[in-house]
Amino acid sequence: DAAKSIIDLAVYGSAQNRSYERLALFVDTIGNRVSGSDNLKKAIKYMYSALQDDKLQNVSLESVKVPHWERGKESAMMLQPRQKNLAILGLGGSVGTPPEGISAEVIVVSSFAELQSREQEAKGKIVVYNQPYVSYGETVQYRSRGASEAAKVGAVASLIRSVASLSINSPHTGWQDYQNGVPKIPTACITVEDAELMARLSSRGVKIVVQLNMGAVQHPDADSFNTVAEIVGSKYPEQVVIVSGHLDSWDVGQGAMDDGGGAFISWEALSLIRDLGLRPKRTIRLVLWTGEEEGGVGSSQYYERHKVNIRNMDLVMESDIGTFMPVGMQFSGKPEARVIMSEVMKLLAPINITKLYDNAEGTDISFWMQAGVPGASLLDDASRYFWFHHSEGDTMTVQNPIWMNHCAAVWTVVAYVVADLEEMLPR
């Protein structure tokens, strides 16, 4: 009755609210944790100590190099047709402006196609992208590529409508990628409200001028660590189920949702199994990734270091789309493995979270899944996730202890049962 014991302990028993309370203490103490920052170093030290205090096995830090981008002071002001402050967040990896800033006329477009069709107008201007929010995966292209696409047509900077499904004048940051051979221009996100304002002004033929100041600096890569702890398997200790979330965050808000919740329900999974005196046949390994927000930097180095043992990797699990009320699990693997995972999910009937969906997702586990290892990701009611994502709104206030209890129960039952089955998942 292991599954029922886990559910009872996590949702109704003495461990209820523990992952929430641990997360609150952590983010209230450390704050946000951007790659290369002192805060991230403190966070890793904190977790290294906390996991040891929790009597987990093989607590260790695995060294990696991560980007170190620093935002600096930044501001934007619409100068014409009237003065208005624009709330901005520079994008990770962006170059800064000259100290005096950049003052230029604006061209507003709603798509890359429109930019191409109006390329003659864009030279020497600031490109404002007012792309509609379709989905995160589709719309985030403007944040990732907007600067380089604007630079190709001679723009001096780009301001991109935040990739947000709801806005209260809140800018959302994120990583952006410069293309090789294309000039690097400053790039930041503006609010949905200001993007729409400038789009309306522009549609009326009104000339818009914006002053942009960004003090961003790219430092040399910094030392960082993936944080690891285990419950060592009793029968096949070399075979591993990974449960994971990422410890780094953006430099705004608290990183409580992205991905504090995922990291702390993953820790909770090991704590619950330990509390119940369970010892699965295989090793359950907690990995708290570093440098995820810059493109899975810590996890890619982890993969390169450990892929020699890929045949022993049973299942890789990552929670990185929030820890709202869970609705099931996403899974990627062969049909034979899916049948088994469907059976495992039935064990969660007592809390009515039994659905198995397709297409596990998670930057940090993607390297393993692409190489054929079965992968699973927590699916929750993430309808509000992109309200807060990468913004000052990503705070503990988003989190809910009851939801986290349920997330931890789902996460732990799946990790434990798969780790304890007599055979590894087919692959």
Partner: peptide
């Protein structure tokens, strides 16, 4: 062999029973 899943029906039943044992 289960034609849909490519796994031995006997093996599948055995694994289902094994998983059910965790209830």
């Amino acid at each position: 062999t289960d034609s849909q899943h490519g796994v031995s029906s006997r093996k599948l039943e055995r694994i289902k029973e094994e998983v059910a044992g965790y209830k």
